[in-house]
């Protein structure tokens, strides 16, 4: 469902992505690991064009998204994203955070949007927080709302950029549990993470990125069990 060919991305002279080829099929959970600065976030952000692609192509359901004729807003409706810093809208309560995009972008009616929001809040275990404001929530709760907000657009793919890295340790689990649930329901997911436990347990495939390329990829047991490249071994020995 996602096909990436020869993806290059530079910021000025700095070449961050140096040729990435990758295919992600429906219902697959792909975990992206790698050292800081290796280009994981940039890679993820190229999939919904939060970063402009320098060279190469990104296809979603056969449509080349980095082409002039593609309406990027149409693509983004189908690609949900969850950020490390949650990025909830602080001036809106939880319900409005979740319903604003369905209402404004999908033209969903108020009642329908609210129903959907309550369903999603139920799913992430925050039904009672509908009228709370983000500043009244803990980090873990905020991230779960952010996941619900992204899901409200009924995306085909969900991108997660280190969704638990900004959380206190005791809140990591509640967010990972929601993500596991989502994976079990068959959501296609690309997850940049430092949670090797999650990658090992939930990942159908693990990509190890280093210096802007995919250095190694395989099933979790391949990558974690018998890493081929020295860089992977080196990285894993530091984080495991």
């Amino acid at each position: 469902m996602i096909k990436i060919q020869g993806l290059h991305k530079s910021f000025g002279k700095l070449e961050v992505l140096r040729g990435i080829d990758c295919e992600i099929s429906e219902k697959e959970v792909v975990c992206v690991i790698g050292p800081s600065g290796s280009g994981k976030s940039t890679f993820l952000r190229c999939i919904n064009l939060l970063e402009e692609v320098t060279k190469g192509s990104v296809y979603i359901d056969g449509v080349k998204i980095n082409s002039k004729d593609t309406d990027i807003n149409e693509i983004r409706k189908e690609v949900g994203m969850v950020f490390q810093q949650f990025n909830l809208f602080p001036h809106m309560n939880v319900l409005d955070n979740i319903t604003i995009a369905p209402k404004r972008i999908r033209k969903m009616h108020e009642v329908e949007a609210n129903d959907l929001a309550y369903q999603l809040l139920e799913k992430v275990g925050l039904r009672d927080k509908a009228s709370a404001y983000p500043e009244q929530l803990s980090g873990g709760q905020m991230q779960r709302v952010a996941i619900a907000r992204a899901l409200a657009m009924k995306p085909k793919v969900m991108l997660f950029d280190e969704p638990t890295s900004a959380l206190d340790p005791e809140m990591v689990k509640e967010v990972l549990d929601v993500m596991k649930q989502l994976a079990k329901e068959g959501m296609t997911m690309v997850v940049v993470t430092h949670e090797m436990g999650f990658a090992r347990e939930m990942g159908d495939r693990v990509l190890f990125m280093d210096e802007g390329v995919i250095m190694e990829e395989g099933t979790p047991s391949e990558v974690f069990g018998q890493p081929k490249s020295v860089r992977t071994q080196d990285f894993l020995s530091k984080v495991l």
């Binding site: 939060l50 807003n73 983004r76 950020f83 995009a101």
Partner: peptide, 15 residues
């Protein structure tokens, strides 16, 4: 306003 706010909005498909 933090860049993340615009990014979150755009990632939801908002023009």
């Amino acid at each position: 306003i933090e860049k993340g706010q615009m990014e979150a909005a755009r990632s939801l498909g908002m023009p």
